[in-house]
């Protein structure tokens, strides 16, 4: 006598518990990392620091929730022998999954454009990383000055490029400050006053003396800046969202298989199990995103 469940459902649940281990391991380590070394003085990056748009994450959450609901719909229709409607619901689920991945692709593109990638983020500018940071920014500024002449911050970009190229020893910290602005780095309450990447002069500034950074004038420019813990953040972000996106893609492949079967007239009520087990997987992928969204975008 075994567990009174169909073999397929038991097998899917055994697979899902391995997936629970996989994702809780990753999310758990992420929580430990962001609560370990980062401090109030040098905190873990916020969504704005790493070009994450909160409403985009919320939108993707809604997309996945609706797709979970359409899978439920599909199974409901199959149980009631309404195959055509069930196939339509599977098609809608496939479409919503694609929307999720497209939004994710745009988000990844933004990370690549801003060089927020593992091992590519400048963190401590008073180390040899600072020299590398200057070379990166110099190349980005040249590109902006040559090809983005209509930018509102073009004058400031030209000035900064001039400073990097003509100054005998340009300060990476001063360049970082000119890109982000002193207010962004220091914060309204000056909680980061002793920030590791600020030049000494900045630390004595009062709120009235904040200078506007290039990205505060034109946020669409592709300019790198110092992000404390940025490399670790990028590693966690790409590992968690990347594996999640792979799981979404895996689910979409199965939905395509179902649609091909329906197109060939080989899909019917007898495939309710197939839809149910795929649905279990799809709901699990939804649950993972339900946790990833707040942890990456809101908390």
């Amino acid at each position: 006598m075994g567990i009174p469940l169909p073999n397929g459902k038991l097998a899917m649940w055994l697979f899902l518990v391995t997936e629970i281990m996989f994702f809780t391991g990753m999310i758990g380590v992420y929580l430990l990392i962001r609560n370990g070394q980062p401090t109030a003085r040098i905190p873990w990056p916020g969504p704005q620091d790493v070009h994450l748009v909160e409403w985009v994450g919320a939108l993707n959450t809604l997309v996945l929730i609706v797709s979970s609901f359409t899978v439920v719909f599909a199974l409901y229709y199959l149980h009631h022998n309404k195959v055509k409607q069930a196939v339509q619901m599977i098609g809608v689920t496939l479409g919503l999954g694609c929307v999720f991945l497209i939004v994710k692709a745009f988000e990844y593109k933004s990370k690549f454009e801003h060089q927020i990638l593992p091992g590519r983020v400048s963190e401590k500018l008073d180390t040899p990383q600072g020299v590398k940071f200057l070379r990166t920014v110099e190349a980005q500024l040249k590109e902006i000055v040559e090809h983005h002449k209509d930018s509102k911050a073009i004058k400031k970009c030209a000035e900064l490029l001039d400073y990097i190229q003509k100054s005998p020893s340009p300060s990476p910290k001063a360049v970082n400050e000119k890109i982000r602005g002193t207010k962004t780095i220091l914060g309204e309450d000056e909680k980061h006053k002793d920030h590791i990447d600020l030049p000494e002069a900045s630390k004595k500034k009062s709120p009235q003396e904040y200078t506007k950074g290039i990205l505060e004038i034109d946020e669409h420019l592709h300019l790198s800046y110092s992000i404390p813990w940025g490399n670790m953040w990028a590693s966690c972000y790409f590992a968690m969202t990347g594996f999640h996106a792979l799981h979404v893609f895996g689910g979409l492949v199965v939905f395509v298989v179902m649609l091909v079967m329906a197109y060939r007239g080989r899909f019917g009520k007898q495939h309710a199990y197939f839809v149910e087990y795929t649905g279990l997987y799809w709901h699990f992928v939804d649950i993972v995103w339900i946790f990833l969204f707040p942890l990456l975008y809101l908390v």
Binding site: I3, L5, W13, L14, V17, I20, M21, G28, V29, L31
Partner: peptide, 17 residues
């Protein structure tokens, strides 16, 4: 029917942390 495989995994996941 499923608690016997779900609960141990959840316990192990917390143990990792």
């Amino acid at each position: 029917n499923l608690y016997c495989i779900v609960i141990p995994v959840c316990v192990m996941a917390v143990m990792v942390m």
